[in-house]
Amino acid sequence: MRELWHPPADVLERTRIGAFLRWLEWEHGLRFDDYEALWQWSVDRTAEFWRAIWDHLEIIEHVAPTATLADARMPGADWFPGARLNYAEHVLRMPGVAGAEPIVISRSQTRGPVDLTAEELRERVRRVRAGLRRLGISKGDRVAAYAPNIPETLVLMLATASLGAIFSSCAPEFGTRSVVDRWQQIEPKLLVAVDGYRYGAKEIDRRAEVAAIREALPSLQQTVEIAYLHEGHDGLHEGLCTWESLTEPTGEPLEFEPVPFAHPLYVLYSSGTTGLPKPIVHGHGGILLEHVKMLALHHDLGPGDRFFWFTTTGWMMWNYLVSGPAAAPASRALRQSRMCDP
């Protein structure tokens, strides 16, 4: 069998998982000779492992947890009871990212390039958060996005999460039935939808589908249209507001609602191969810990790296892609890993 890749001899000195190993030895006196030993500890001492991830990657606590794993029974394991945190706060803190450095690089067949710096992303989330509040969105409300993998969808998801509201997305190539089968189950209060998109040279107008989706969701109180295909047009459906009205300038600060560890963050779905698609609820804390662990330790992602996944908003890998900026190392973890260097 041909070997495709072999780690370099200095892999432990150059990678984030190596820094994690040094940190474990420095902070807890734990030493692991290889990856298998680290993995075995992670499954034998599950609570200790996840508490180490929490501490090493500096999860922001609005209220500290009273324990790591209060009840290990499945189903119903109780992780980090008492903790209060917010997923969006971790994506948007981005330590080590320079002010003018792009944090979002967007390319599309439908419109020109869009790049956002860290500050621009935070500013857009701040405005949309305020816009959602003007529309009456608050903690626990469901916000649905019928939109592709574009900056607006990212901003909407983070703004929704910052409020403690619950996000769900479907890609605009989904037909009306596929969307309605999913969203009738969660009863969204707000729909944000594009008017269409281009696929190669072909224009795909989705305004009829949006109208049908709205008709099938009596829970909707408002719909916001993103003029993505017909940029700059004024032919809105009656009763719709524009993305621009959602992003109007405001003096309202960007804040993050502290929520319990298991508070719903977003709803994903099974494929619907048998029966209706099954809604799967993911919480702020669980997704945050799993994603930063994977991105930092397995992907070795950090400031200056570019992370791309070819995905639509109808696949869970889009949600994983969104977490990329949360993997930037925080200052204390960096200092401590350097202190452990030989």
Rank of each mutant, 00 (worst) to 15 (best):
F256V: 02
W50I: 02
Y228P: 07
A77Y: 04
L288V: 11
L268T: 10
A130W: 00
Q221P: 05
D115A: 11
V210N: 07
Y146R: 11
F167P: 00
R207Q: 12
A216L: 06
G314L: 06
G99D: 15
D10Q: 14
G131F: 08
I59G: 05
L297A: 10
R22T: 11
P172V: 05
D181H: 15
V180W: 09
D55I: 08
F308H: 12
T46H: 13
A70P: 06
I186W: 11
L132P: 04
L268N: 05
V104F: 04
G314T: 04
D141G: 06
R335G: 10
G136F: 02
C241G: 13
F174P: 05
R338G: 04
P151T: 00
K139W: 03
E25T: 11
H298E: 11
P151Q: 00
H291Q: 15
A147T: 13
A211T: 13
G175Q: 05
Y266N: 13
S178M: 04
L57K: 04
P260T: 04
D33Y: 08
R182N: 07
I213T: 06
E244P: 01
P75Y: 08
I280K: 12
G324P: 06
D205N: 15
F49D: 07
G232T: 02
A327V: 03
A47H: 00
Y228A: 09
R338F: 08
W5E: 12
P329N: 03
Y269D: 02
Q221A: 09
F261N: 05
P8E: 03
D341V: 04
L135I: 06
N319F: 00
P102D: 10
D33S: 14
H282V: 13
V63L: 06
E203H: 09
G239D: 05
V104I: 08
E187G: 00
G29M: 03
R332V: 12
R84Y: 02
R51H: 14
I280D: 08
L190M: 02
I186P: 10
R16L: 12
D78G: 10
T312W: 01
I186E: 10
W243Q: 13
P260R: 02
L297W: 08
L297I: 09
V267N: 07
S42D: 00
P65F: 03
Y146W: 11
T160E: 02
V11R: 15
H233F: 08
M1R: 07
R133P: 02
F308E: 09
V281I: 14
W5S: 11
E257R: 01
Y35M: 13
L289N: 05
G96W: 09
